[in-house]
C-alpha cells in the first residue's frame, strides 16, 4: 500500500473521519466497561453526568481544564516548530515553585505580588526549557529525551525543597510549602462559584498564542521552521533563534499552569499539584490539531473525561484509569483520521 495526497477532500471525508475516530473511542469505552463488569451505556452516562450534569460538575470541569489549556498551548506552540517539548510537567513545577517563593518569601502586598509571581513563574518555565533547546541547537542533542528526563529531575528537586528549606513548619510533617497569603491568590471570577481567574488568564493566553501564530512574523517563522527546517534556513529564517523564542513562549505557558494551580486553586506547593497535566497537554494539543483556540475546546473535553471518569468510578466498579485509556485511544484514532482526510490509501 502507499499514500496518495488528496487535492480537495470533500466534507464527508474531512468531517466523517474525525467523527468515526470519536465513535471508535466510544466503542473502546464500552468494551472497557464490559471488561470491568459494568453496563456500558450506564458507565458512559455517568461519565457525561459527572462532567457536565450539574453546575458544580461543569465548574469542576472548567477548573480542571485550566492547567490543561496552558500545557496544551505550550505543546501546541512547540510542536508547530517541531520542537518536541515533552517537559511541560517540569516547566509547570518550575512555575509553581517560583509562584510560591515570590508569594511567601517577599512579603509583598497582593496587587504587587500576583503579577510578580506570574512573571517569575514564566521566567522559571522558560529557563527550564531553554537548557534542552540550547543543547539541541548548539550540540544537536535530541530534546525529546532531555525534556523527558528533566521532568524526573525537577520533581526530585521540588521534593528535596519541600522536605528541606521550603517545608511548612506547621505542616504536620507533610512535604508541603507554606500557604500563600490570602491577598496573593487569584480571586474567583464570580463570587460563590468555584472558578478562579486562572481560567480567564488561560483564555487570554489562548487568544494571544493564536495572534502570535497567525498574525505575526514570528508565527510565520515558527510554522516555516516546523514544516521544513532546511528550507526555512535556506530562506534566511534564523531557525535557531526561532527555536529559542518558541521554547521561551512554550516553557512560559507551561509554567503558568503551575502558577494558576497554586495561586488559584491549591494555595501552596505539594508534590501532587499536577497529575500529569504536562503529558496530557500533548493529547490536548494534538486533538486541537495544534490550533491555540482549538486547545481551549479540547482541554475542556479532556478535562470533562477526567472529571466525569472520577465521578463515575465512585458510583460504578469501573477504575478511573478508563479516562487515560480513552484519551490515548482518542489521540491515536484522531491522528490517523486527520491524516486520512489528506491522503488516500492506494494498493501497490
Amino acid at each position: 500500500m502507499r499514500l496518495e495526497p488528496i487535492a480537495n477532500p470533500g466534507l464527508a471525508r474531512s468531517a466523517g473521519l474525525p467523527a468515526a475516530a470519536i465513535a471508535l473511542t466510544v466503542v473502546v469505552a464500552s468494551l472497557l466497561a464490559l471488561l470491568a463488569g459494568a453496563d456500558p451505556l450506564a458507565t458512559l452516562g455517568l461519565i457525561l453526568k459527572g462532567a457536565a450534569g450539574s453546575k458544580f460538575a461543569l465548574l469542576e470541569t472548567l477548573n480542571r481544564a485550566t492547567p490543561l489549556i496552558f500545557t496544551g498551548l505550550a505543546v501546541a506552540v512547540a510542536f508547530r516548530a517541531k520542537l518536541w517539548n515533552i517537559g511541560a510537567e517540569a516547566q509547570l513545577y518550575a512555575g509553581a515553585l517560583l509562584t510560591v517563593l515570590v508569594g511567601t518569601q517577599l512579603g509583598l502586598p497582593g496587587p504587587v505580588a500576583l503579577p510578580l509571581m506570574a512573571l517569575a513563574a514564566i521566567l522559571a518555565g522558560a529557563l527550564t526549557l531553554l537548557g534542552p533547546v540550547l543543547l539541541k541547537t548548539r550540540l544537536g542533542v535530541d530534546e525529546v529525551v532531555t525534556t523527558l528526563l528533566l521532568n524526573f529531575i525537577m520533581l526530585l528537586f521540588i521534593s528535596m525543597l519541600l522536605e528541606g528549606p521550603l517545608k511548612d513548619p506547621l505542616g504536620m510533617g507533610w512535604p508541603k510549602s507554606e500557604a500563600l497569603p490570602r491577598d496573593a491568590r487569584l480571586p474567583r471570577i464570580v463570587d460563590g462559584l468555584r472558578l478562579h481567574w486562572g481560567f480567564g488568564l488561560a483564555l487570554i493566553c489562548a487568544l494571544g498564542t493564536w495572534v502570535i501564530q497567525t498574525r505575526t512574523t514570528l508565527g510565520y517563522e515558527i510554522r516555516a521552521t516546523g514544516l521544513n527546517l532546511q528550507g526555512a534556513r535556506f530562506a534566511g529564517i534564523p531557525v535557531n533563534a526561532v527555536m529559542v523564542k518558541t521554547a521561551l513562549i512554550s516553557g512560559g505557558l507551561a509554567a503558568l499552569a503551575g502558577f494558576s494551580e497554586v495561586a488559584g486553586l491549591k494555595g501552596n506547593l505539594t508534590l501532587d499539584i499536577s497529575p500529569g497535566f504536562g503529558y496530557t497537554g500533548i493529547i490536548v494539543a494534538m486533538l486541537a490539531m495544534l490550533n491555540p483556540l482549538g486547545v481551549v475546546v479540547s482541554a475542556i473535553f479532556v478535562a470533562g473525561i477526567f472529571v466525569g471518569a472520577d465521578s463515575m468510578s465512585r458510583a460504578a466498579e469501573v477504575p478511573t484509569y478508563i479516562a487515560d485509556i480513552l484519551l490515548a485511544t482518542a489521540l491515536l484514532f484522531m491522528v490517523l483520521a486527520i491524516m486520512l482526510t489528506r491522503f488516500r490509501v492506494v494498493r501497490g
Partner: peptide, 28 residues
C-alpha cells in the same frame, strides 16, 4: 510505517495507552 504518522506522537500515545491499560487491568 505504512501510515507514516508522527513517530513522536504515536510513541507517546502508545506509552500513555500501555501504561493506562496496565493500571486499569491491575485495578480490575
Amino acid at each position: 510505517v505504512p501510515f507514516g504518522l508522527s513517530q513522536h506522537v504515536v510513541g507517546l500515545g502508545i506509552t500513555m495507552l500501555a501504561t493506562a491499560a496496565a493500571y486499569y487491568a491491575y485495578r480490575i
